[in-house]
Structures are given as C-alpha cells and as structure tokens.
Simulated scan of single mutants.
Amino acid sequence: MFDHLGFRVRDLAAARKFYDAVAASLGLSTIDNTETSFLLSRSAEALVPFVWIGTGKPDFWRDGHRTAQSPLHLAFTANSKHAVDAFHKAALENGGADNGAPGPRGPAEMQYYGAYVIDPDGNNIEAGFRGSEWPPRRMEAG
C-alpha cells in the first residue's frame, strides 16, 4: 500500500542495533544507505517498500524539522506466531522495552497474534501474524 516511509532517530547506532535485530527476527533486512541513515526492507533485491531510518535531514524535509516528539506506531507483518515471539525477544535484547507481550489481540475472528515493543526513541513497534482465515469470509445471503 505504501512505497516508503521515513522517520528520524536521535541515536543512529542504538536504532541500528534495535532494527537489525527486529529485521532479522522477521526475515527482513537492514541496508546501508548513507552515513546518517539505513533502510529496512524485504531485501536488497526487493527494496520497495522500505522504511528510511536516520539522523540526517532528507532534502525534501523542511528546515527546522526535528526528531518527532510524538511516537510513531509501525506494525510489521510476521509470517508465523514464532516470528512474533522472536521479534519480541530480539527487540527486548537490543534496546527495546516491552509494551505488550506476544499473544492474541482484538476480537477472535481477526485471528491476530501480535506483540508490541517501544524502540530506543519511544516509538511503538509491533509485529503481528494473522491466521489463515483473515480476512473472514463474508456471509452468503440466503
């Protein structure tokens, strides 16, 4: 649905450590971009969509832009419940804080299993897995 998004961080090394671990747990990649940023995507070969993460100011951002004071919510798709569990563990071991242990989320019909962590900049980062019946089948008239 999106091509790319980006956000600034205060400490690139702390962010890179956190997102390297999170990406690996979900089968994603972090890719060197510039001295002040990196990309998070499926792989170097399947770059788009991607998330730009950095301390620099891209040319298209306005002067005076600062690292956001409001937290960002970013949810990654996991390919299994095990990947959600691995995401949560990796995040906590690499500078993240727990914001919701792995488990079922939402109404049962959503078949959603997710976990939430807070990254080193205070953003709420999520990984979730939807069961095979998502989206639910529509009821047939009759």
Rank of each mutant, 00 (worst) to 15 (best):
residue 1 M to S: 13
residue 2 F to V: 15
residue 2 F to M: 13
residue 2 F to N: 08
residue 4 H to S: 10
residue 5 L to I: 12
residue 7 F to P: 01
residue 7 F to W: 07
residue 9 V to L: 10
residue 10 R to H: 11
residue 10 R to N: 14
residue 12 L to K: 09
residue 13 A to M: 02
residue 14 A to P: 05
residue 15 A to P: 11
residue 16 R to E: 05
residue 18 F to T: 04
residue 21 A to Y: 01
residue 23 A to V: 02
residue 24 A to P: 05
residue 25 S to A: 15
residue 26 L to A: 00
residue 26 L to W: 04
residue 27 G to A: 09
residue 28 L to K: 13
residue 35 E to V: 11
residue 39 L to F: 15
residue 40 L to N: 07
residue 40 L to M: 14
residue 42 R to V: 15
residue 42 R to Y: 07
residue 43 S to C: 05
residue 43 S to Y: 03
residue 45 E to L: 11
residue 45 E to A: 12
residue 47 L to C: 09
residue 51 V to C: 10
residue 51 V to K: 06
residue 52 W to I: 03
residue 56 G to H: 00
residue 58 P to M: 04
residue 60 F to G: 02
residue 60 F to D: 06
residue 62 R to H: 10
residue 63 D to R: 07
residue 63 D to I: 01
residue 63 D to T: 06
residue 64 G to F: 02
residue 64 G to K: 02
residue 65 H to C: 06
residue 66 R to H: 05
residue 66 R to M: 04
residue 67 T to M: 10
residue 69 Q to Y: 03
residue 69 Q to M: 09
residue 70 S to R: 15
residue 71 P to E: 08
residue 71 P to G: 06
residue 74 L to M: 13
residue 74 L to G: 06
residue 77 T to K: 15
residue 79 N to W: 01
residue 83 A to D: 12
residue 83 A to W: 04
residue 85 D to I: 04
residue 86 A to M: 08
residue 86 A to Q: 14
residue 89 K to I: 15
residue 95 G to S: 05
residue 96 G to P: 11
residue 97 A to E: 14
residue 102 P to S: 03
residue 102 P to L: 01
residue 102 P to W: 01
residue 104 P to I: 15
residue 105 R to H: 07
residue 105 R to T: 07
residue 109 E to F: 13
residue 109 E to Q: 14
residue 109 E to R: 09
residue 110 M to I: 09
residue 114 G to R: 00
residue 115 A to K: 11
residue 117 V to W: 03
residue 119 D to R: 06
residue 120 P to A: 00
residue 123 N to G: 08
residue 124 N to C: 05
residue 124 N to M: 04
residue 124 N to K: 09
residue 128 G to C: 00
residue 130 R to G: 10
residue 132 S to Y: 04
residue 132 S to Q: 10
residue 136 P to Y: 12
residue 137 R to S: 14
residue 137 R to A: 15
residue 139 M to Q: 13
